[in-house]
């Protein structure tokens, strides 16, 4: 939790800075951002969350190399963007950290960011960022438990690592918090890309009694389809997944990196190229629960979730 404390201090400082900077030049005009990411920029998940966020920053020029699941290829891309003179080079994958720690010292004038992680390797030109996806998981887990008439919730996961594990664990915690007697079945399919297997995992969870489900990573698009056919409710994460099944998606936890990026940009312009750990969470509005307006969520259930969000906001 040490990193959280650091984050807090950093963020308070950041907000102060923003407040100060707001009066002067806060535009990102001409600022060049390069993103290297593992999956497709239209994955409705992790990569898309960052690409969308960067594109929302007005005036910034954004270059993207997506689909870079090979770490060594990512290293070449990161090096190249730094050589090209991009102001901020983002390695959007926790597996890129090892390479980034070797590359960053070669480009002391360039600012790097990577995540999700909480380690800047003690380098002055590296930012790192993480998402408190367990918070959103917990909030939605609470709502899921309240909505589940069978007291049975299913979660489809990719491989039990990193951000996925964080989210799934948070979701499970939320469900049990709301209803300690509920059943939570979790199925990690051991692949980030097998859409067919993810859909069969969803079938299996529904077979085991689940009437509310969630899942994380890009292969869950298959699971959402099954949930939709079977009329089982769905909670999404990373990007807004409502478009996948407007009749059954209740809400999605969406990563909004733009506040964080704007803050980084302001700092970089002021000459601070790194050395700080960011965390997006409810308190700094980096995490947002986006409700599906077409789904008629009972007010009391929504209140349970909102209460938890407020709790996180007050904490953080």
């Amino acid at each position: 939790m040490k990193s959280r404390t650091i984050t807090l201090v950093v963020l308070m400082a950041a907000f102060a800075l923003i407040a100060a900077a707001c009066s002067s030049d806060d535009s990102a005009e001409g600022f060049r951002i390069a993103i290297v990411a593992p999956s497709a920029s239209n994955d409705l998940a992790f990569t898309q969350s960052m690409v969308d966020s960067a594109n929302r920053i007005e005036g910034a020029e954004v270059a993207v190399t997506d689909g870079t699941f090979v770490v060594e290829d990512a290293a070449v891309a990161l090096r190249d963007y730094a050589t090209e003179g991009y102001d901020l080079v983002i390695g959007h994958g926790s597996q890129y950290g090892g390479s980034l720690s070797e590359i960053a010292p070669d480009f002391p004038e360039t600012s790097f960011a990577w995540g999700t992680a909480a380690d800047t390797f003690g380098l002055p030109n590296v930012y790192s960022y993480e998402a408190a996806s367990d918070q959103g998981g917990e909030v939605m887990g609470i709502m899921a438990a309240a909505l589940s008439q069978a007291a049975n919730v299913g979660i489809v996961g990719p491989i039990e690592v990193g951000d996925a594990k964080l989210y799934v664990d948070g979701f499970e915690k939320g469900v049990l918090e709301q209803n300690p007697g509920a059943t939570v079945n979790i199925n990690y399919i051991d692949s980030f890309s097998d859409v067919a297997l993810a859909s069969e995992a969803a079938q299996s969870l529904i077979g085991a009694g689940a009437d509310v489900m969630s899942g994380t990573a890009q292969m869950t698009v298959g699971a959402v389809g099954v949930a939709s056919t079977e009329g089982v409710l769905w909670f999404g994460t990373q990007s807004n997944q409502t478009s996948l099944a407007p009749e059954i998606v209740v809400a999605s936890q969406v990563y909004h990196w733009e506040n964080m990026l704007e803050d980084m940009i302001a700092k970089i312009k002021d000459g601070t190229l790194g050395g700080e750990v960011y965390e997006i969470n409810f308190a700094n509005e980096g995490l947002v629960i986006e409700y599906n307006e077409d789904y008629d969520l009972p007010g009391d259930v929504k209140d349970l979730g909102e209460a938890k969000i407020d709790e996180f906001k007050n904490e953080g």
């Binding site: 491989i159 039990e160 079945n185 979790i186 990690y188 399919i189 051991d190 069969e200 077979g207 085991a208």
Partner: peptide, 23 residues
Amino acid sequence: VNALVLELKTLEIIPRDLSNLAS
């Protein structure tokens, strides 16, 4: 075998630590 492994994971008969081995 794929379907059976998935089912065993859902029912938590395969511990999550060993999930990859089952896959």
